[in-house]
Every structure is written in structure tokens, then in C-alpha cells.
């Protein structure tokens, strides 16, 4: 399914979604910076930081890059190289 150019009224609805996503991104960033100043051991924060980062990246890709509404093929083009890279990195780490 190819994305088309929606009329003006539907653009207003999209702008509201974009604004919500932007607020979420800003809040998550503020939480990340706040957590980094709590003085907790870095190792205990690694997993939460990676999850928050993944969440932010997914929000940008899904809504700002329109992967949520665009053809699924573009999602594969983005995700498959990333997964292959991760697999390669894990295999390299395991063998060293």
C-alpha cells in the first residue's frame, strides 16, 4: 500500500499525533537525563536506558518516518540490516 497525500483536515489530525509523539520524546529524554544524575550504579541503569532509547527510536521511525502507515517493505529495509548487524556483533563477541 502506497501512502497518498491526505486532505487538509486529516493533516490536522496527523499534526496532533506528531505533537503527542514529540512530547513523549521530550519527556523520555528528560527522564533519561534525570536518571543519569541519581547516582545509581551505571550497570543497573543499562537495561532501562537501552529500553528507553529503543522506545524513542521506534516512535520516530513509526510516526515521523511514517513506517506505521507506509508499506511494510520499508520497515523490512530498515530493520533487517540492523538485525543482521546485531547478529554479526553478537557472533563476533561470542567468538572473541
Amino acid at each position: 500500500m502506497q501512502a497518498t497525500n491526505p486532505p487538509a483536515e486529516s493533516q490536522n489530525a496527523r499534526r496532533a499525533t506528531y505533537a503527542l509523539v514529540f512530547v513523549l520524546l521530550a519527556v523520555i529524554t528528560a527522564v533519561e537525563v534525570g536518571l543519569s544524575y541519581l547516582g545509581l550504579p551505571r550497570t543497573s541503569l543499562t537495561a532501562p536506558f537501552l529500553m528507553l532509547s529503543l522506545g524513542k527510536a521506534s516512535l520516530v521511525a513509526a510516526f515521523f518516518m511514517h513506517l506505521r502507515s507506509d508499506t511494510r517493505f520499508y520497515t523490512y529495509v530498515l530493520v533487517i540490516p540492523a538485525l543482521m548487524l546485531l547478529l554479526f556483533a553478537l557472533l563476533t563477541a561470542a567468538s572473541s
Binding site: E32, L35, S36, R42, L45, T46, F49, L50, L52, S53, K56, A57, V60, A61, F64, M65
Partner: peptide, 17 residues
């Protein structure tokens, strides 16, 4: 947006963890 995503990842791995 892709450049933005790259920075989201860099911010985490360089500055946060």
C-alpha cells in the same frame, strides 16, 4: 529523522551507559 534516530542511539551508548 534517520540522523535523529542515530543520535538517540549515540546519546544512550556514549553519554548514558
Amino acid at each position: 529523522h534517520f540522523v535523529d534516530i542515530v543520535w538517540i542511539v549515540l546519546f544512550t551508548i556514549i553519554y548514558l551507559i
